[in-house]
């Protein structure tokens, strides 16, 4: 039977791609399909700030060339939205009205930018940085020497800020409780880290939360951000960095146990024995914390892909985190997050 097993991987990121390649190594003859909502091949999102350095062809960000998938006989279904999962019939419903049957399913759909509810009305006035297209849009929106307004300031945002500043732009960071997400910081640590941000050239704005955002007419993408204290700041682009939420909408009726993310055991198995989850989408049971926890960072996510792949192909493996969760202040007073590390 293994030769006809259909492994379906939802998600075209680090976890999904690494899992697919491990499954292929372990089962040369099984069917492997990666389902992706995006149009592109797997590319390195950690490198995206480089669009500010002029690296603007998406092909330059590819982790694998197209031939990689062809030679491994991995089917890539891109521009494919999953709308529903039926665990009883082992069927995925796709938005374009096709169904897809799986024998073993890995959910590695990752997360998407979290927007606080009070700002949802302004979503269209902000630009994320979660994929190549918006990264390009953001870069194009910022004038030479112009200003990027960052809201929140999670570690992805701070990482981007380093490049934006290095390429001659201003970054104004409007603080929020989710600043430094996903690092959990104490109030005293927070003061230190904010100083480190200032050392990095980030203009920290601590006058309260964002109240509303306005378009500056006649300027294209320029925005005015109004703060709770009545002050307002002006920037070429407003980018929200409030951390991630797991992408699990399609699982609403699936019967898979979820909290914020998909709940899995340390073998990354869900409540269904032929469904696993890996990456930013899952909360893994941690005996140490006696709770289901998210584990972030490139190495963790890649390790989850590997663990899931082993368990999907009959070899028992258990996930343990290898990434420190502590923010670090460098000798030069700047900030460093272990989540910025990748191969």
């Amino acid at each position: 039977m293994p030769s006809s097993t259909h492994h379906v991987v939802l998600g075209n990121g680090i976890a999904g791609n690494h899992a697919a390649s491990v499954i292929r190594e372990r089962e040369p003859d099984s069917r492997i399909t990666i389902v992706s909502a995006g149009a592109l091949l797997f590319y390195n999102r950690y490198d995206l700030p480089n669009v500010f350095r002029g690296r603007q062809h998406w092909v330059d960000y590819l982790v694998h060339p197209p031939e990689y998938y062809e030679s491994r006989n991995i089917t890539l279904r891109r521009k494919t939205q999953v709308t529903e999962l039926d665990t009883r019939t082992q069927t995925l419903s796709l938005a374009h009205r096709e169904t897809l049957h799986y024998d073993k399913l890995l959910i590695a759909t990752g997360g998407h930018a979290y927007i606080p509810e009070r700002l949802l009305d302004y979503t269209k006035l902000m630009l994320g940085f979660h994929n190549f297209i918006v990264a390009m849009q953001a870069q194009k929106s910022v004038r030479k020497g112009g200003t990027v307004i960052m809201l929140g300031g999670d570690v992805m945002g701070i990482d981007l800020a380093r490049t934006v500043i290095a390429t001659g732009h201003r970054v104004i960071l409007v603080l929020d409780s989710r600043t430094f997400w996903p690092h959990e910081v104490t109030p005293s640590e927070r003061v230190k880290y904010l100083q480190a941000l200032t050392n990095m050239g980030v203009e920290v704005q601590d006058s309260g939360r964002v109240e509303r955002i306005e378009m500056i007419s006649g300027t294209g993408s320029a925005r005015r951000v109004f703060l709770e204290n009545g002050e307002h700041i002006r920037g070429d682009v407003v980018m929200p960095f409030y951390g991630l939420v797991p992408t699990v909408d399609f699982l609403a009726t699936s019967g898979i146990d979820m909290e914020r993310g998909i709940l899995v055991n340390p073998q990354l198995q869900t409540v269904r024995d032929n469904i696993w989850a890996a990456g930013d989408v899952c909360q893994i049971w941690s005996a140490k914390h006696n709770a289901y926890r998210f584990f972030y960072g490139y190495r963790n996510v890649k390790a989850m892909g590997e663990v899931a792949a082993h368990n999907m192909t009959g070899k028992k493996a258990t996930f343990t985190s290898t990434v420190s969760e502590e923010l670090v202040i460098n000798r030069d007073g700047t900030l460093y997050s272990p989540y910025w590390e990748y191969d």
């Binding site: 197209p66 031939e67 990689y68 374009h96 009205r97 096709e98 169904t99």
Partner: peptide, 26 residues
């Protein structure tokens, strides 16, 4: 067409047949 007239069987939609090097426009 990403909004076909009726539901199709598995494998009957073109998106499942693209080569990795192809650029899809749904």
């Amino acid at each position: 067409d990403s909004a076909p007239m009726s539901a199709v069987a598995e494998g009957a939609h073109i998106s499942g047949h693209l080569k990795p090097g192809h650029i899809p426009y749904a």
